[in-house]
């Protein structure tokens, strides 16, 4: 018996060894090393960095640009999930139940909903870098821009979507929402599909309109999925990098108006060659992310509705 158990342990170990090894080498160990590098003045090229204690962290508190980046991340953390979930829920509802009694008699989506579902998913298929370059062209400030072209044809002053520091952040947010919505439409559609049809029918027989169908039936029964979406989108908002770095002028500009934590870490490491300081920023970002994870796990502990 004992031997059997030993064999089983060995079997499991054999399977886990490879992934755990990879995880240790490429995830855990760099994290630990980052904590060490954060306490040195390493500039990336020497083999013998000097230990400076908490100097980098002290410096970080006076770094106006980094805190600007933190504020942008915080704004994204609130706005990105909110907008994405509202829009995605609305679309998912329309695609699945919003059509009311279709010609066939059952509950269904609005006409052409299958086609829309595919179209909504398109942005998700594109690589982030592709999206960023694409939107650089969409946002071009001259007549060749997809948005400014028509505006200028109508005689309106062109909008500096990426070149006006007051507008640029909203452009970034818009692109992120545009890219995220498709996936959550599909996610919520799947959630809706698992809600028993007769619940909707019963509500309809009782005279519920589209509005009350959505708020009384759909939303409460989808609450679990919405929470998952919130956590995913929150993580997306905290570690946003590629969209900002590729799409915006001066990597997070103009005038640092779109910069985010990850962009500042990259800038400090690879253009200022302050790897020690960049690691310190990374450590701070690590604690922000862990903090967010703990809070969201706490808040999402809620009883499930069984059906």
């Amino acid at each position: 018996m004992l031997f059997q158990r030993y064999r089983r342990g060995l079997f499991i170990t054999a399977f886990l060894a490879a992934p755990v090894t990879l995880y240790l080498v490429y995830v855990i160990s760099p994290y630990i090393q980052a904590f060490y590098i954060a306490m040195t003045d390493w500039r990336g090229v020497t083999a013998t960095p000097r230990f400076v204690g908490f100097d980098n962290f002290a410096r970080l508190f006076a770094d106006g640009i980094f805190w600007k980046a933190v504020r942008h991340n915080a704004a994204l953390l609130v706005l990105l999930p909110l907008l994405t979930i509202v829009i995605a829920l609305f679309f998912a509802f329309l695609l699945n139940v919003g059509g009311g009694n279709g010609g066939s008699g059952g509950l269904g989506g609005i006409r052409g909903s299958k086609l829309y579902r595919v179209i909504f998913f398109f942005p998700q298929v594109l690589a982030v870098a592709v999206v960023a370059v694409l939107f650089q062209q969409v946002f071009r400030p001259d007549g060749s821009g997809m948005l400014n072209g028509p505006l200028m044809a109508l005689g309106v002053e062109p909008v500096g979507f990426l070149s006006n520091p007051d507008v640029a952040f909203w452009s970034v947010l818009g692109v992120m929402v545009w890219q995220a919505v498709g996936f959550y439409v599909v996610l919520f559609s799947a959630g809706l599909a698992s809600i028993p049809r007769d619940m909707f029918e019963a509500a309809q027989i009782d005279g519920a309109g589209r509005g009350s169908l959505f708020f009384r039936i759909t939303l409460p029964l989808l609450w679990d999925t919405v929470q998952v979406a919130w956590v995913y989108l929150g993580i997306l908002a905290l570690d946003v990098f590629a969209i900002v770095w590729v799409m915006t002028d001066q990597h997070g500009g103009p005038d640092f108006s779109t910069t985010v934590m990850a962009a500042e870490i990259y800038r400090n490491a690879f253009s200022y060659f302050r790897f020690g300081y960049a690691s310190a920023l990374g450590v701070v970002m690590f604690f922000f992310t862990v903090g967010f994870a703990i809070i969201s796990l706490r808040l999402s502990r809620r009883e499930r509705i069984e059906y």
Partner: peptide, 25 residues
């Protein structure tokens, strides 16, 4: 098996030592 397991762990130690932190050679 132990041998295999041991063999699998040797590069781990090396990789852990040589990852991001600079090492003087």
């Amino acid at each position: 098996r132990q041998l295999l397991r041991g063999a699998a762990l040797v590069p781990v130690a090396g990789a852990l030592a040589a990852c991001a932190t600079p090492a003087s050679k």
